[in-house]
Design a protein around this nucleic acid. Structure first.
Lengths: 147, 147
DNA sequence: AGGCGTAGTGGGGATTTGTGGGGAACTCTC
DNA sequence: GAGAGTTCCCCACAAATCCCCACTACGCCT
Protein backbone atom coordinates (compact mmCIF):
# COMPACT_ATOMS: atom_id res chain seq x y z
CA UNK A 1 0.00 0.00 0.00
CA UNK A 2 3.06 2.21 0.41
CA UNK A 3 3.61 4.58 -2.49
CA UNK A 4 6.30 4.23 -5.10
CA UNK A 5 9.62 5.82 -4.30
CA UNK A 6 13.28 5.63 -5.20
CA UNK A 7 15.01 5.74 -8.55
CA UNK A 8 16.96 3.39 -10.76
CA UNK A 9 19.02 3.65 -13.92
CA UNK A 10 18.12 0.60 -16.00
CA UNK A 11 18.74 -0.71 -19.48
CA UNK A 12 16.18 -0.65 -22.26
CA UNK A 13 16.88 -3.71 -24.39
CA UNK A 14 16.57 -4.00 -28.15
CA UNK A 15 12.95 -5.04 -27.79
CA UNK A 16 12.02 -1.96 -25.79
CA UNK A 17 11.72 -3.72 -22.47
CA UNK A 18 12.54 -2.11 -19.10
CA UNK A 19 12.67 -3.80 -15.74
CA UNK A 20 10.68 -2.34 -12.88
CA UNK A 21 12.70 -2.27 -9.63
CA UNK A 22 11.68 -4.89 -7.10
CA UNK A 23 10.95 -2.27 -4.49
CA UNK A 24 8.29 -0.78 -6.70
CA UNK A 25 6.96 -4.17 -7.70
CA UNK A 26 6.52 -4.97 -4.03
CA UNK A 27 4.71 -1.72 -3.47
CA UNK A 28 2.09 -2.83 -5.99
CA UNK A 29 -1.38 -3.48 -4.71
CA UNK A 30 -2.32 -7.14 -5.37
CA UNK A 31 -5.46 -6.05 -7.16
CA UNK A 32 -3.31 -4.22 -9.69
CA UNK A 33 -2.53 -7.72 -10.96
CA UNK A 34 0.90 -6.69 -12.16
CA UNK A 35 -0.81 -4.57 -14.75
CA UNK A 36 -0.15 -0.94 -15.55
CA UNK A 37 -1.58 1.65 -17.83
CA UNK A 38 1.25 3.40 -19.56
CA UNK A 39 0.77 6.81 -21.14
CA UNK A 40 2.33 10.15 -21.92
CA UNK A 41 3.39 12.10 -18.89
CA UNK A 42 4.29 15.70 -18.31
CA UNK A 43 7.67 17.15 -19.31
CA UNK A 44 8.50 14.45 -21.87
CA UNK A 45 8.42 11.44 -19.64
CA UNK A 46 6.25 8.34 -19.50
CA UNK A 47 3.73 7.63 -16.74
CA UNK A 48 2.94 4.21 -15.41
CA UNK A 49 -0.26 3.84 -13.40
CA UNK A 50 -1.04 0.59 -11.59
CA UNK A 51 -4.35 -0.87 -12.70
CA UNK A 52 -6.20 -0.09 -9.49
CA UNK A 53 -5.14 3.53 -9.62
CA UNK A 54 -5.96 3.87 -13.31
CA UNK A 55 -9.48 2.57 -12.84
CA UNK A 56 -10.27 5.55 -10.67
CA UNK A 57 -8.99 7.76 -13.40
CA UNK A 58 -11.23 6.08 -15.94
CA UNK A 59 -14.21 6.69 -13.71
CA UNK A 60 -13.35 10.34 -13.64
CA UNK A 61 -12.91 10.47 -17.38
CA UNK A 62 -16.08 8.49 -17.95
CA UNK A 63 -18.12 10.92 -15.91
CA UNK A 64 -17.38 13.74 -18.31
CA UNK A 65 -20.10 14.91 -20.62
CA UNK A 66 -19.29 13.79 -24.13
CA UNK A 67 -21.58 16.35 -25.67
CA UNK A 68 -19.14 19.00 -24.59
CA UNK A 69 -16.45 19.73 -27.14
CA UNK A 70 -13.66 20.34 -24.65
CA UNK A 71 -14.40 17.15 -22.82
CA UNK A 72 -14.13 15.23 -26.05
CA UNK A 73 -10.78 16.82 -26.84
CA UNK A 74 -9.53 15.87 -23.46
CA UNK A 75 -10.75 12.29 -23.48
CA UNK A 76 -9.30 11.65 -26.90
CA UNK A 77 -5.95 13.15 -26.08
CA UNK A 78 -5.52 11.32 -22.81
CA UNK A 79 -6.70 7.94 -23.98
CA UNK A 80 -5.04 8.00 -27.35
CA UNK A 81 -1.61 7.43 -25.85
CA UNK A 82 -2.67 5.05 -23.16
CA UNK A 83 -1.88 1.38 -23.32
CA UNK A 84 -2.24 -1.51 -20.94
CA UNK A 85 0.96 -3.41 -20.15
CA UNK A 86 1.69 -6.38 -17.93
CA UNK A 87 4.86 -7.34 -16.16
CA UNK A 88 6.46 -10.32 -17.86
CA UNK A 89 7.96 -13.25 -16.00
CA UNK A 90 11.08 -11.19 -15.37
CA UNK A 91 9.26 -8.20 -13.94
CA UNK A 92 9.64 -6.06 -17.06
CA UNK A 93 7.22 -4.06 -19.11
CA UNK A 94 7.63 -3.26 -22.76
CA UNK A 95 7.39 0.26 -24.11
CA UNK A 96 5.67 1.09 -27.36
CA UNK A 97 7.62 2.80 -30.11
CA UNK A 98 5.42 5.86 -29.87
CA UNK A 99 6.10 6.41 -26.21
CA UNK A 100 9.82 5.81 -26.57
CA UNK A 101 9.90 8.38 -29.30
CA UNK A 102 7.87 10.82 -27.25
CA UNK A 103 10.15 10.53 -24.23
CA UNK A 104 13.33 10.39 -26.30
CA UNK A 105 14.26 7.02 -24.88
CA UNK A 106 16.95 4.86 -26.40
CA UNK A 107 18.94 2.29 -24.42
CA UNK A 108 18.87 3.67 -20.91
CA UNK A 109 15.98 4.68 -18.74
CA UNK A 110 15.53 6.32 -15.38
CA UNK A 111 12.76 4.75 -13.34
CA UNK A 112 11.43 7.10 -10.71
CA UNK A 113 8.86 6.39 -8.04
CA UNK A 114 6.26 9.12 -7.69
CA UNK A 115 3.90 7.88 -5.01
CA UNK A 116 0.81 6.86 -6.98
CA UNK A 117 2.60 6.29 -10.27
CA UNK A 118 5.99 5.51 -11.76
CA UNK A 119 7.83 7.76 -14.18
CA UNK A 120 10.22 6.69 -16.90
CA UNK A 121 12.69 9.25 -18.17
CA UNK A 122 15.50 9.42 -20.63
CA UNK A 123 18.54 10.17 -18.43
CA UNK A 124 19.66 13.18 -20.49
CA UNK A 125 16.19 14.63 -20.62
CA UNK A 126 15.96 14.28 -16.87
CA UNK A 127 19.28 16.06 -16.36
CA UNK A 128 18.15 18.94 -18.45
CA UNK A 129 14.90 19.01 -16.56
CA UNK A 130 16.71 19.24 -13.26
CA UNK A 131 19.00 21.98 -14.49
CA UNK A 132 16.10 23.92 -15.84
CA UNK A 133 14.55 24.05 -12.41
CA UNK A 134 15.34 27.53 -11.29
CA UNK A 135 14.95 26.96 -7.61
CA UNK A 136 16.89 24.65 -5.37
CA UNK A 137 15.40 21.90 -3.26
CA UNK A 138 14.90 24.06 -0.19
CA UNK A 139 13.17 26.83 -2.06
CA UNK A 140 10.92 24.41 -3.87
CA UNK A 141 9.91 22.72 -0.66
CA UNK A 142 9.11 25.99 0.94
CA UNK A 143 6.96 27.03 -1.99
CA UNK A 144 5.01 23.79 -2.10
CA UNK A 145 4.78 22.74 1.52
CA UNK A 146 5.44 25.86 3.49
CA UNK A 147 1.92 27.17 3.66
CA UNK B 1 -14.59 -3.99 -18.16
CA UNK B 2 -11.73 -1.65 -18.87
CA UNK B 3 -12.61 1.01 -21.42
CA UNK B 4 -11.19 1.38 -24.87
CA UNK B 5 -7.89 3.14 -25.16
CA UNK B 6 -4.88 3.45 -27.41
CA UNK B 7 -4.54 4.29 -31.04
CA UNK B 8 -3.57 2.48 -34.21
CA UNK B 9 -2.91 3.41 -37.81
CA UNK B 10 -4.43 0.62 -39.86
CA UNK B 11 -5.14 -0.11 -43.50
CA UNK B 12 -8.56 0.05 -45.07
CA UNK B 13 -8.54 -2.60 -47.77
CA UNK B 14 -10.20 -2.43 -51.14
CA UNK B 15 -13.35 -3.92 -49.68
CA UNK B 16 -13.68 -1.22 -47.03
CA UNK B 17 -12.64 -3.42 -44.17
CA UNK B 18 -10.70 -2.19 -41.12
CA UNK B 19 -9.22 -4.33 -38.40
CA UNK B 20 -10.01 -3.49 -34.79
CA UNK B 21 -6.90 -3.71 -32.61
CA UNK B 22 -6.78 -6.76 -30.36
CA UNK B 23 -6.48 -4.63 -27.27
CA UNK B 24 -9.84 -3.10 -28.00
CA UNK B 25 -11.33 -6.44 -28.97
CA UNK B 26 -10.24 -7.79 -25.62
CA UNK B 27 -11.82 -4.86 -23.84
CA UNK B 28 -15.17 -5.86 -25.33
CA UNK B 29 -17.84 -7.03 -22.97
CA UNK B 30 -18.85 -10.62 -23.88
CA UNK B 31 -22.48 -9.58 -24.09
CA UNK B 32 -21.56 -7.20 -26.88
CA UNK B 33 -21.23 -10.38 -28.94
CA UNK B 34 -18.63 -8.83 -31.21
CA UNK B 35 -21.30 -6.55 -32.52
CA UNK B 36 -21.13 -2.79 -32.87
CA UNK B 37 -23.41 -0.01 -33.87
CA UNK B 38 -21.57 2.19 -36.27
CA UNK B 39 -22.68 5.75 -36.95
CA UNK B 40 -21.64 9.31 -37.62
CA UNK B 41 -19.53 10.83 -34.90
CA UNK B 42 -18.58 14.33 -33.93
CA UNK B 43 -15.83 16.19 -35.80
CA UNK B 44 -16.02 14.14 -39.01
CA UNK B 45 -15.17 10.77 -37.57
CA UNK B 46 -17.02 7.50 -37.26
CA UNK B 47 -18.25 6.16 -33.91
CA UNK B 48 -18.34 2.51 -33.02
CA UNK B 49 -20.44 1.53 -30.02
CA UNK B 50 -20.38 -2.02 -28.69
CA UNK B 51 -23.84 -3.53 -28.60
CA UNK B 52 -24.22 -3.40 -24.82
CA UNK B 53 -23.15 0.22 -24.69
CA UNK B 54 -25.39 1.20 -27.55
CA UNK B 55 -28.44 0.01 -25.69
CA UNK B 56 -27.73 2.56 -22.98
CA UNK B 57 -27.26 5.12 -25.69
CA UNK B 58 -30.74 4.37 -27.00
CA UNK B 59 -32.16 4.91 -23.57
CA UNK B 60 -30.39 8.24 -23.36
CA UNK B 61 -31.65 9.25 -26.75
CA UNK B 62 -35.14 8.14 -25.87
CA UNK B 63 -35.19 10.35 -22.83
CA UNK B 64 -34.48 13.50 -24.79
CA UNK B 65 -37.17 16.09 -25.14
CA UNK B 66 -38.60 15.69 -28.62
CA UNK B 67 -40.33 19.05 -28.52
CA UNK B 68 -36.92 20.61 -28.76
CA UNK B 69 -35.83 21.19 -32.34
CA UNK B 70 -32.15 20.56 -31.71
CA UNK B 71 -32.86 17.30 -29.95
CA UNK B 72 -34.84 16.12 -32.93
CA UNK B 73 -32.04 17.04 -35.33
CA UNK B 74 -29.52 15.22 -33.22
CA UNK B 75 -31.57 12.09 -32.85
CA UNK B 76 -32.35 11.92 -36.54
CA UNK B 77 -28.73 12.36 -37.53
CA UNK B 78 -27.35 9.77 -35.20
CA UNK B 79 -30.01 7.21 -36.00
CA UNK B 80 -30.25 7.80 -39.72
CA UNK B 81 -26.66 6.72 -40.26
CA UNK B 82 -26.57 4.01 -37.67
CA UNK B 83 -25.92 0.48 -38.79
CA UNK B 84 -25.13 -2.76 -37.05
CA UNK B 85 -21.83 -4.44 -37.91
CA UNK B 86 -20.17 -7.62 -36.71
CA UNK B 87 -16.51 -8.51 -36.46
CA UNK B 88 -15.53 -11.04 -39.12
CA UNK B 89 -13.32 -14.04 -38.41
CA UNK B 90 -10.24 -11.82 -38.60
CA UNK B 91 -11.53 -9.22 -36.18
CA UNK B 92 -12.44 -6.66 -38.84
CA UNK B 93 -15.53 -4.64 -39.50
CA UNK B 94 -16.58 -3.29 -42.85
CA UNK B 95 -17.45 0.32 -43.37
CA UNK B 96 -20.30 1.51 -45.51
CA UNK B 97 -19.59 3.83 -48.41
CA UNK B 98 -21.67 6.56 -46.83
CA UNK B 99 -19.67 6.62 -43.64
CA UNK B 100 -16.34 6.43 -45.45
CA UNK B 101 -17.40 9.39 -47.50
CA UNK B 102 -18.56 11.29 -44.45
CA UNK B 103 -15.28 10.76 -42.59
CA UNK B 104 -13.14 11.27 -45.70
CA UNK B 105 -11.64 7.84 -45.38
CA UNK B 106 -9.64 6.22 -48.15
CA UNK B 107 -6.95 3.60 -47.57
CA UNK B 108 -5.72 4.42 -44.09
CA UNK B 109 -7.61 4.80 -40.86
CA UNK B 110 -6.77 5.89 -37.35
CA UNK B 111 -8.50 3.78 -34.73
CA UNK B 112 -8.79 5.55 -31.40
CA UNK B 113 -10.10 4.19 -28.14
CA UNK B 114 -12.41 6.58 -26.30
CA UNK B 115 -13.48 4.66 -23.20
CA UNK B 116 -17.04 3.64 -24.06
CA UNK B 117 -16.67 3.75 -27.83
CA UNK B 118 -14.14 3.51 -30.62
CA UNK B 119 -13.49 6.26 -33.14
CA UNK B 120 -12.31 5.87 -36.71
CA UNK B 121 -10.58 8.84 -38.30
CA UNK B 122 -8.94 9.72 -41.54
CA UNK B 123 -5.31 10.41 -40.54
CA UNK B 124 -5.16 13.82 -42.21
CA UNK B 125 -8.44 14.90 -40.75
CA UNK B 126 -7.21 13.92 -37.34
CA UNK B 127 -3.99 15.88 -37.75
CA UNK B 128 -5.94 18.96 -38.56
CA UNK B 129 -8.20 18.31 -35.61
CA UNK B 130 -5.26 18.03 -33.23
CA UNK B 131 -3.67 21.20 -34.51
CA UNK B 132 -6.89 23.06 -34.05
CA UNK B 133 -7.03 22.14 -30.39
CA UNK B 134 -6.35 25.15 -28.30
CA UNK B 135 -4.79 23.56 -25.24
CA UNK B 136 -1.78 21.30 -25.01
CA UNK B 137 -1.65 17.97 -23.25
CA UNK B 138 -0.39 19.29 -19.93
CA UNK B 139 -3.07 21.92 -19.68
CA UNK B 140 -5.83 19.53 -20.63
CA UNK B 141 -4.67 16.88 -18.20
CA UNK B 142 -4.20 19.29 -15.36
CA UNK B 143 -7.76 20.45 -15.75
CA UNK B 144 -9.24 17.06 -15.08
CA UNK B 145 -6.62 14.89 -13.48
CA UNK B 146 -5.02 17.62 -11.47
CA UNK B 147 -7.21 17.17 -8.44
C1' DA C 1 34.55 -18.70 1.86
C1' DG C 2 31.37 -21.10 -0.68
C1' DG C 3 26.88 -21.77 -2.07
C1' DC C 4 22.25 -20.31 -2.77
C1' DG C 5 18.82 -17.18 -4.17
C1' DT C 6 17.39 -13.08 -6.36
C1' DA C 7 17.69 -9.24 -9.65
C1' DG C 8 18.83 -7.36 -14.05
C1' DT C 9 19.84 -8.53 -18.88
C1' DG C 10 19.67 -10.91 -23.30
C1' DG C 11 17.93 -13.86 -26.92
C1' DG C 12 15.24 -17.65 -29.48
C1' DG C 13 11.06 -19.81 -30.74
C1' DA C 14 6.10 -20.24 -30.81
C1' DT C 15 1.96 -17.75 -31.28
C1' DT C 16 -0.87 -14.01 -32.54
C1' DT C 17 -2.08 -10.12 -35.39
C1' DG C 18 -2.67 -7.31 -39.43
C1' DT C 19 -3.39 -7.70 -44.27
C1' DG C 20 -4.63 -9.39 -48.79
C1' DG C 21 -7.23 -12.27 -51.78
C1' DG C 22 -10.27 -16.14 -53.60
C1' DG C 23 -14.57 -18.12 -53.93
C1' DA C 24 -19.43 -19.19 -52.38
C1' DA C 25 -23.87 -17.14 -51.51
C1' DC C 26 -26.97 -13.59 -52.04
C1' DT C 27 -29.22 -9.57 -54.32
C1' DC C 28 -30.65 -6.65 -57.89
C1' DT C 29 -31.40 -5.65 -62.69
C1' DC C 30 -32.59 -6.57 -67.22
C1' DG D 1 -33.69 -16.91 -65.41
C1' DA D 2 -29.05 -15.29 -66.52
C1' DG D 3 -25.59 -12.05 -65.55
C1' DA D 4 -23.32 -8.49 -62.97
C1' DG D 5 -22.30 -6.70 -58.85
C1' DT D 6 -22.12 -7.18 -53.57
C1' DT D 7 -21.54 -9.19 -49.44
C1' DC D 8 -19.87 -12.54 -46.53
C1' DC D 9 -16.84 -16.23 -45.05
C1' DC D 10 -12.69 -18.67 -45.15
C1' DC D 11 -7.68 -19.40 -46.20
C1' DA D 12 -2.86 -17.84 -46.39
C1' DC D 13 1.30 -15.30 -45.25
C1' DA D 14 4.61 -12.06 -43.28
C1' DA D 15 5.62 -9.41 -39.47
C1' DA D 16 5.25 -8.19 -34.90
C1' DT D 17 4.38 -9.72 -30.30
C1' DC D 18 4.57 -12.53 -26.41
C1' DC D 19 6.39 -16.19 -23.52
C1' DC D 20 9.83 -18.88 -21.88
C1' DC D 21 14.66 -20.18 -20.98
C1' DA D 22 19.55 -18.93 -20.00
C1' DC D 23 23.28 -16.24 -18.20
C1' DT D 24 25.69 -13.11 -15.08
C1' DA D 25 26.42 -10.26 -11.06
C1' DC D 26 25.59 -9.21 -6.56
C1' DG D 27 24.18 -9.88 -1.76
C1' DC D 28 22.85 -12.87 2.08
C1' DC D 29 23.12 -16.84 4.96
C1' DT D 30 25.33 -20.58 6.98
Amino acid sequence: MAGFKGRADYAVDSKGRVAIPVKMRNALNPEAKNTFTITRGFEKCVFLYPLDRWEKMEEEIGSLNMYNRESRDFVRTILMWADEVKLDGQGRISLTKELMEFADLDDRALIIGALDHIEIWDPDTFDRYLNAQSDDYETLAERVLGV
